[in-house]
Amino acid sequence: MFTIGDFARLGRVSVRMLRHYDVVGLLPPAHVDPSSGYRFYTAAQLQRLNRLVALKDLGLTLDQVRIVLDDKLSVEQLHGMLSLRRAELRQQILADESRLRRVEARLRAIEREGAMPTDDVVVKPVPATRVARLTATAASYGPEDIGPVIQPLYPELMARLDRAGVPITGYGIATYEPAEGDAVVVHAGMTVSVEPAAAFEFEVVDLPALASAATVVHRGPMDDVDATYQAVASWVEANGYRQNGFAREVYLNYGHGDPAEWTTELQLEITKP
């Protein structure tokens, strides 16, 4: 048998926690010395301790842990529960990291307010462009909804273009359309020069020309695009224009090398009221 201190070290828990588990009846010691009151445990009890700690880490209350332990879950059942919880925790970590990136991006946008020169905005016509594209719908135009939708579309589109033997002749271009409520239709496109064909696993369309577009080159990942959009908005308002729809995003150099060097041209159709 092991003293409570040795058993705590073997089970990687505190002595205080073992005493609490004893008091609530979850893990009583195998033997208590009647004269000294010292608690002693057996190696076999480590199995119950492992299950107890694992279930507690799943978020179960001690009362719920007791019910599960008394039902004597098999190793396979416990492994399944733990695997599910592990997947949930990993997903939560990814969501928290994404939220942190968005907060940091907003902070950078706040820090750069008024710092980006509007002289960087260039007004020019944009010619019609033929693209192959895949389409999906995001819950909103917020980065937390757009990112997870558009990011998988491009690798899938590239794979389908490769299977079809269709060469890419220019840049990637993302376009957006309003849908019901806050939802946004997301089009992930790559410039091509082929004719539409029913056999393709993608749509081939011609993006219409823009007679006049306020354009600006954004440098860095799109997570940091807020400040650039705000600079364009300031320019549009200051120069008496009206914005028409969502901006096009032309990925001049994106996804390769140093993210600080990535470049995306934003093309915002404008008209005079």
Score class of each variant (00 low, 15 high):
I93W: 00
R66W: 09
V232R: 10
I146T: 02
A260R: 01
G11E: 00
R51T: 07
A233G: 11
V186W: 08
A138P: 05
Y38I: 04
L78F: 10
D119V: 14
F200E: 08
V123K: 04
Y176V: 01
P273A: 06
G240R: 06
T228H: 10
S74Q: 06
R99V: 02
E265F: 05
L107C: 14
P178D: 07
G59T: 00
Q77D: 13
D63P: 09
K272S: 07
A138N: 10
R39S: 03
L84D: 05
N244D: 13
N50V: 03
T137S: 01
Y229I: 12
Q230D: 10
V15T: 11
R130I: 05
D120N: 08
W262E: 13
R48W: 07
S83H: 04
A197K: 03
E177H: 04
A132D: 03
L60C: 12
M116V: 12
T3M: 04
R12C: 01
T129S: 06
N239K: 02
R9W: 00
R130S: 15
G240P: 01
G5E: 13
R99M: 14
F7A: 11
T169P: 15
M158Y: 02
G181W: 13
S83C: 09
Y38V: 02
A138W: 10
A138Y: 00
V24I: 15
T191N: 08
L78A: 07
R9T: 12
P208D: 08
A260G: 12
I146R: 05
R133S: 08
T169E: 01
R242V: 02
I146Y: 10
Q91W: 00
N244I: 15
L46C: 15
L89W: 01
L52W: 02
A105F: 12
P167C: 13
H79T: 15
G142S: 13
F2R: 11
V217K: 09
G245E: 00
T263Q: 14
L58W: 01
Q243K: 02
A43Q: 08
R242A: 15
Y141C: 08
S36F: 13
G59M: 03
W235G: 04
V149S: 04
L27I: 03
G142D: 10
D119Q: 14
D6A: 13
A231Y: 11
G240I: 02
A238C: 04
F246D: 05
L161P: 07
V192Y: 09
L161C: 04
S14P: 06
V75K: 14
V225F: 14
M1C: 13
E104P: 00
S234E: 06
P143V: 01
A87Q: 14
G142A: 15
A159P: 07
G172N: 09
V32I: 11
D258K: 07
P155K: 00
Y41D: 11
D70Y: 10
E265P: 10
A115K: 04
L26E: 03
D71M: 12
L52P: 06
H187D: 05
